[in-house]
Design a protein around this nucleic acid. Structure first.
Length: 214
DNA sequence: TATGCGATATTCT
DNA sequence: GAATATCGCATAG
């Protein structure tokens, strides 16, 4: 049963996973390094309906100067948060249907970030399933649009400091992270071929075609 | 399993 | 007016 994701639901005596908030000083400054670092860490959402959280198993780096990054043509009302100091949320809406959640990187006033593409659900699994409509556990937050939907992340989360106590924050890895693999990014039309996507090899919650999950 | 397409809203040219 | 850091369903193999 290697495809079974261990969650807090398997430990009824400890209803919520024990989580330690990440300090900003722990986050690598460089975008690609941050994208790799975030694999295995936890994204936590505090909401009136309850807490949801999940292990980050897939990310993509959009470093300074990358033509597929939203900050490539300079600051706009939409990408403003991308210029915040590392460890803030940049959330935007695309395709008329999906929100995308990013973690800002680099120094303040440098526009760059890391797209969070998939989570392995940890806490609040019932709530995630409710928001997404019933489905397999490993599909609840598999893909960036699904991740945002499962965690109730929308434009109100844009600009939140993920290293502070609040509605959205980052926590340290709850257990040892598996092997990290690297590949090209998904769904972009420029800068194709640059290996700036990271994922935990073997996790059933990683998105994309089979060849990008090996 | 893999590929293709429409839906949908916001942003930028 | 065009493009888009997607999703889910449809269809073919």
């Amino acid at each position: 049963m290697s495809n079974v994701i261990p969650t807090s639901a398997d430990r009824p005596d400890d209803r919520l996973t024990r989580l330690r908030r990440l300090r900003r000083a722990e986050l690598p400054l460089a975008t690609v390094a941050l994208a790799r670092y975030l694999i295995g860490k936890v994204l936590v959402r505090e909401h009136a309906d309850g807490r949801t959280s999940g292990r980050i198993v897939e990310t993509e780096a959009y470093p300074p100067g990358d033509a597929s990054g939203h900050a490539f043509r300079g600051p706009t009302p939409r990408n403003r948060a991308l210029y915040l100091e590392r460890g803030h949320a940049y959330v935007y809406f695309v395709y008329g249907s999906s929100y995308m959640c990013n973690v800002t990187s680099e120094s303040a006033r440098v526009g760059a970030g890391v797209l969070l593409r998939a989570l392995e659900p940890l806490d609040g699994i019932d709530l995630m399933a409710l928001r997404r409509g019933a489905g397999r556990l490993c599909d609840l937050a598999r893909g960036p649009g699904r991740l945002a939907a499962a965690m109730a992340i929308d434009r109100r989360c844009d600009g939140i400091d993920l290293c502070a106590a609040g509605d959205l924050w980052l926590a340290a890895a709850p257990w040892a992270t598996g092997p990290i693999a690297r590949s090209v990014r998904i769904g972009i039309t420029s800068e194709i071929g640059r290996p700036r996507r990271f994922y935990e090899r073997g996790s059933p919650a990683v998105s994309g075609p089979r060849r990008l999950r090996a």
